[in-house]
Design a protein around this nucleic acid. Sequence first.
DNA 1: CTGACTGCAAAATCTTTGCAAAGAC
DNA 2: GTCTTTGCAAAGATTTTGCAGTCAG
Lengths: 151, 151
Amino acid sequence: MTNSIAYDDVLENFKKLLKSNNLKYTTQRELILKIIYDNDGHFTPEDIYNLIKESYPEVKLGIATVYRTLTLLEDAEIVSSISFGTQGKKYEFGLKKHHDHLVCMKCGNIEEFYDETIEKRQEEIAKKFNFEMHNHVMKITGICSVCQAKR
Amino acid sequence: MTNSIAYDDVLENFKKLLKSNNLKYTTQRELILKIIYDNDGHFTPEDIYNLIKESYPEVKLGIATVYRTLTLLEDAEIVSSISFGTQGKKYEFGLKKHHDHLVCMKCGNIEEFYDETIEKRQEEIAKKFNFEMHNHVMKITGICSVCQAKR
DNA sequence: CTGACTGCAAAATCTTTGCAAAGAC
DNA sequence: GTCTTTGCAAAGATTTTGCAGTCAG
């Protein structure tokens, strides 16, 4: 699933958001956003930390800042996360079209899909329960085609 | 959602499972299963630990045993879990009819639902991706009707 | 008896926090 | 300059592990 929004727009948006909340625009915050955008995938906070250390070794960065920034970005709905129990969370760029996940138990790879029927039903169900839906995640776990072939 | 399977059957099954894996039937293991069955809800390992301490103060029990047993029960698909990121997991009795969850962000309460349309679509999607589906979870987060009324 | 199970406490993970120094505006 | 942010290390929270004693079969 490719990002249809240009990075410049995302960045502009983020800067505005920071300004309007009296927050500062810093190199670290920009890089964290950029790495998630550029690599279009699903990353743990540590993944993101390592990617930045690797791609921008000149920048000072602590893991705490990654966590702090991810929280910030998630609150702003610029990134979204998917949870793996004790094994933490993975983050992805959140401004693409809503979608759900197929998670491989073997290789950990994540495929994305979007299904109109499911989306519609979710809304109907929430309505039926008089539940104010803010978000929804669907995760199918199993063995991906690649890992099946390996057996 | 009420348990349609009698506890005796569940226990019988569990005992067989233990035997066939060369594992021992212990008071702690039985109680953990029983508490989850009896209370029909969603519990953290600590909840379960406390419930047992309260209901059966005479039994010796450590939190580690609760974790170990829950892993055991989950592997055996007798209980299933739903993940809450950093805030850990909640476990529920897993031998009821498959269902999905509506999770309230305010009060943490969980409602269950089952939708045939969604179940069917999930299978179709897995098939389309040539993905061997082992499990699937769907979680709708938002504000439940009770909490909406409070505002 | 023998090997599995248990509680305890220590270790391991992942995440958050306190604080002094650095940086944005 | 002022106030926020940062990195670091320490603290937290949750879960796992090592081990000696205990218990089931």
